[in-house]
Computed example of a mutant assay.
Amino acid sequence: MSGEAIRFEGATRRLDGFEAVFDLSVAAGTWLGIIGPSGAGKSTLLDMAAGFSDLDAGRVAMFGADMAGIAPADRPLAMVFQENNLFPGLDAFRNAALGLTPRLRLSAAERAEVADMLERVGLADKAGRRPHELSGGERGRVALARAFLSRRPILALDEPFAALGPALRAEMLALLADLRVSGSGEGTPRTILMVTHHPEDAVAHADRIAFVENGRVALEGPAHTLLSQRNDARLDRYLGPGRGET
């Protein structure tokens, strides 16, 4: 799959005195890191894409199709939240299997596919454990497994590894980088929109960066160039001394 994965055209959301208006285009196969101050509208951007936030004006299109009126479950996008949103009464296997089907009556081939994905994320021996029996990193792995099993070409991640320490966060990002390529099932890697408060993560993995401020995409460009040149006062204020450079 090639071309444009997602486009925001004057996509507007007004809530409690805050107005977000986004114009942004993301090519298929791009890993876009989304950074910016708290309250800038980063999560709103993802919610617009996923269909969790109704637009007051403008449009969101995916692979050329207008998403107006399209329910979240019917969009070509899977969402991974910071809290992972696992069902506490289901074990890791069944939580992951929801990416394939909500009915949880799996064929032998589907069970094998879920088992293979859990093995790929390092949880083959934890398939029978419920979320409260898993560590934060393991719950994140289940959420990633579920998202990739959905086979949707766009993944939106809202600070999914924010609660993890640096070493485990780096491990999870490396896993995400591997899965987006090896698990795409076609020539083009999955498109990723990832909100993060760690610019160094974006430098290490993202192709491009969108800097969001005051409900707008203030800057967008190649990750290393944008974060190394530091020639914009707004970005400088956000990053602070020495942040984001490699």
Rank of each mutant, 00 (worst) to 15 (best):
M1N: 15
R7M: 08
E9V: 12
T12G: 01
F18N: 03
A20F: 05
S25K: 14
V26W: 11
A27K: 13
T30A: 14
W31K: 15
L32V: 12
G33L: 13
I35W: 04
G36W: 08
G41Q: 01
A50C: 13
S53K: 13
D54K: 15
M62E: 00
A65Y: 05
I70S: 03
A71Q: 15
R75P: 06
P76H: 01
N84D: 12
L86M: 02
L86G: 02
L98P: 07
G99N: 03
P102H: 00
R103W: 13
L106V: 01
L106H: 05
E110P: 04
A112R: 14
E113C: 07
A124D: 15
A127Q: 13
G128T: 07
H132W: 11
E133R: 12
G137V: 08
R141L: 05
V142A: 07
R146D: 01
S150M: 09
A162Q: 09
R169K: 10
R169N: 01
E186P: 06
G187V: 03
R190M: 08
I192N: 00
M194K: 06
D207K: 03
R208H: 13
R208P: 14
I209Q: 11
G215I: 07
V217S: 10
G221W: 13
G221S: 08
L226N: 09
D232P: 08
R243D: 12
